[in-house]
Design a protein around this nucleic acid. Structure first.
Lengths: 161, 161
DNA sequence: CGCCTTTTCTTGACTCCTTCAAGAAAAGGC
DNA sequence: GCCTTTTCTTGAAGGAGTCAAGAAAAGGCG
């Protein structure tokens, strides 16, 4: 299996397309996670499709590994999320989505009409958004901001109708 | 049906227990919604159980109206939400929850461990939280802030273990 | 007060996302 | 190269929420 192991490491391999310059196996090793083809493909798919839902990720992974089960994708997403390599977001009324921008305190802008998600940098540095007016005794570790609205395409469509 | 209609209007009636002083039928009429017992009961249940999930609401409603179907509760929740009498929230990983505090720009503090939800007034007035650093062309109508952490009870349980 | 139209509720089935479980396969260390 | 641990495959199940058709109730009007 030496050949296959080499494939997993080699940058620029077909399976790593769309993640130019990012050494995915190294990311996995740095997180003390075993390097498997499903995990590399899942990580690459999320890098290539930010904010994608699980179905989209499964589809992207299967362009590289047609035989991967949906369960392997779910397991990989959980493992990667638990290790901090991915972040899971889930706007109300939506299925789970994943992204690779982590640890930079950015927020999300969601279209009520089509569900599109885009990143927004924190409006006011860091501190204000992360401080609640009254913590009710909770130990707060994150402040998540979701902006709701209508995206340009849906706004145009509504005006046209 | 005069007697029953009177029951719906009468304040202090058994069915209105737990909503002291709030004229629920009047709220419904003000929103141009028909006054039905399931709707009054649902509205009362959410008043009595802030942040309750649908299952809890169904249970509360059935203490007054044992025969109400879950579908009637779902329909009522949708109608009341659409009319602006209720607000639906759904923290990631949780089922839908409903509350009666509306139109006052408050936010939520959610326990990662037990899922408890408490209200938090907007930390910094209104404007800053409602303004994204870059709107990407979206028409933004709401900024929702969710603080994540651990509630006092779960913190104590973790330290004790 | 009673009829009629519109809206809402009941019943029952169904979809979708996600998780559970058991055994086969692969990764990584010695 | 072998062994242990972890991960993947296969197949099924769980639960929140939705859909559809007909019965029932609310509200307006005469």
């Amino acid at each position: 299996m030496t050949t296959e192991a080499a494939d997993l490491d080699a940058p620029g391999v077909p399976g790593a397309a769309g993640t130019a310059g990012v050494d995915l196996p190294q990311l996995l090793r740095a997180a003390t996670l075993r390097v498997t083809r499903p995990r590399v493909a899942v990580l690459g798919a999320v890098h290539a499709h930010p904010h994608a839902d699980t179905e989209t990720i499964i589809g992207a992974v299967r362009t590289e590994l047609p035989a991967v089960s949906h369960q392997a994708v779910y397991d990989s997403l959980h493992a990667l999320t638990g290790a901090g390599l991915l972040r899971r977001i889930q706007p109300a009324g939506s299925v789970a989505r994943y992204e690779t921008r982590i640890a930079d305190n950015h927020h999300h802008l969601v279209c009520r009409s089509c569900g599109a998600v885009v990143d927004v940098d924190c409006a006011i540095g860091q501190a204000p958004c992360l401080t609640a007016s009254d913590d009710h005794g909770f130990v707060i570790d994150e402040a998540e901001v979701t902006y709701w609205g209508t995206c340009p395409a849906c706004t145009a469509a509504a005006h046209g109708a």
